[in-house]
């Protein structure tokens, strides 16, 4: 058991119907992308949950952390003019 390997970690994204987004489903262990795809199929799509699968090595991901959350996301808070509800439409105007 000393130098046992459980192979590398991969992240799995499933598109449930064509046209939709690929959504993160979880992870699998595999030595290469073919095995990762097969394992993802077996682990995450046993009940027609998928029409397409993406896999990528977990080591290739970078994720923003809670430290960056303020810097990243707060600037959007005071920019209400990016939303359609910000604007006053003239009385009586239709279909806008």
């Amino acid at each position: 058991m000393a130098n046992d390997t459980q192979l590398a970690l991969w992240e799995v994204f499933i598109q449930s119907k064509s046209g939709g987004h690929h959504v993160h489903a979880g992870s699998v262990h595999a030595s290469d992308y073919k095995m990762a795809l097969q394992n993802a199929r077996d682990v995450y799509t046993r009940r027609n949950e998928g029409s397409s699968i993406w896999v990528a090595p977990s080591s290739c991901f970078s994720a923003s952390g809670p430290e960056e959350a303020e810097m990243f996301f707060d600037p959007a808070e005071d920019k209400l003019y990016r939303h359609p509800t910000f604007y006053t439409m003239p009385e009586g105007a239709k279909q806008i």
């Binding site: 046992d4 459980q6 992870s27 077996d42 046993r46």
Partner: peptide
């Protein structure tokens, strides 16, 4: 039974997000 194996795998992955490896858990 295949589902149960799958449940084990989801849960091992979940534990791995906390910083323990699959090898350590099996050991």
């Amino acid at each position: 039974i295949q589902d149960e194996g799958g449940h084990g795998l989801y849960l091992y992955s979940t534990a791995e997000t906390l910083g323990i490896s699959r090898e350590e858990m099996i050991e």
